[in-house]
Design a protein around this nucleic acid. Structure first.
Lengths: 187, 187
DNA sequence: CTTAACTTTTGACCTAAATCAAAAAATCAC
DNA sequence: GTGATTTTTTGATTTAGGTCAAAAGTTAAG
């Protein structure tokens, strides 16, 4: 729980009362490598904070798994539109490695938003930083060669890019496995 | 001011006191076609809510203007990372058409966040809907032909896509003007 | 260990879209 | 309205990266 409380403390002051409510409402769970945390046939009602490990958000296109993005230690993840709008969406979440997470249910999160204005602030601030990442990625997708896309990926996922299998990286970048393999070979 | 208050009312209850503070802190201004609202050499301290017209966020790459996205009636716009992190960023904002906007300064927005928890909530909710748009766009950038990218653009900017010059659309999609012109011609 | 099932690499060939170039059309300024 | 500038279209050529196919490595299970 300490990791998660420290994470909140980076954005807001965590009072004893808030700490107590957080502890009461947040569960802990472990997933084995390859396990599916969330499936596209259900509404995503949980948000996962990664204590250790690596998760992947992906969807199926013509039967193939296309990786949307990866999340590691210190990140929150969920199926965004499903979680926010409470509807079915096309994303799956699975574990690339053995992964330990803290889990919060959407109704508990709503309770926290309703009773702790500082949690609204936390959500606003942490969303803000994700924004920059998404905009940069859109730029990187448009005006760069496959090689530059891969370099950008290595920067963004510095420290964890080697933990992600090549095929998943290729679909994340929107290039083929073969092309990515050739890029890696040449340097 | 009515348009803007109605916009807030879609997400939160706007009390008389909040209405009063909003009115006090929000300015109105008109820009001619082609006028630059924000330039990359300064920190973006203003956020613009479009009452009428069409704005564009863009940056320069090798001396060419690359459009990041477009905003119209009912949208907020600013230079996101500059506004959020209070630092210089590479984006410009200009008016594609004659445009009328409401303007809020970052310090006034902070005052509102500090004094009206419902404004934090408004920010969280309205950001949430932009999220879905960005993720969908990333997907659209990766796995589609130039023609599909253009079709996706027309859907997302339904109703306003014809108001945006071809060259700007091409740079938004990350394809050349020539290719876009050919796509338009064929149907 | 050994076999089976993935994952990654290598090779040959092809296609969508980029580049270069110039004409046609639209918009703007006086 | 007329000439000048900007935007869009059309044409010829090139190229990065895709597709298809098969071999080589790697990982997992019994």
């Amino acid at each position: 729980m300490t990791d998660l409380l420290n994470h909140f403390a980076q954005y807001i002051k965590v009072s004893d009362y808030l700490k107590e409510e957080l502890t009461k409402r947040i569960a802990f769970k472990s997933f084995a490598k390859g396990e599916v945390l969330h499936s596209a046939d259900r509404i995503c009602t949980k948000s996962y904070f990664i204590q250790k490990g690596l998760l992947r958000l992906y969807f199926l296109k013509d039967g193939k798994e296309i990786s949307e993005y990866f999340s590691c230690e210190g990140d929150w993840t969920n199926s965004p539109r499903s979680f926010i709008q409470r509807k079915i969406d096309l994303y799956y979440i699975d574990a690339i490695e053995q992964t330990d997470v803290y889990i919060v249910e959407v109704q508990d999160l709503m309770f926290l938003f309703n009773n702790f204005p500082e949690m609204e602030r936390y959500a606003r601030l942490s969303m803000g930083s994700t924004f920059g990442y998404l905009i940069e990625r859109i730029t990187s997708m448009r005006f760069t060669t496959a090689k530059e896309k891969y370099q950008h990926f290595c920067e963004v996922y510095k420290g964890i890019h080697h933990r992600i299998p090549l095929g998943m990286v290729a679909s994340y970048l929107g290039i083929t496995q073969e092309t990515l393999s050739r890029i890696r070979a040449e340097k």
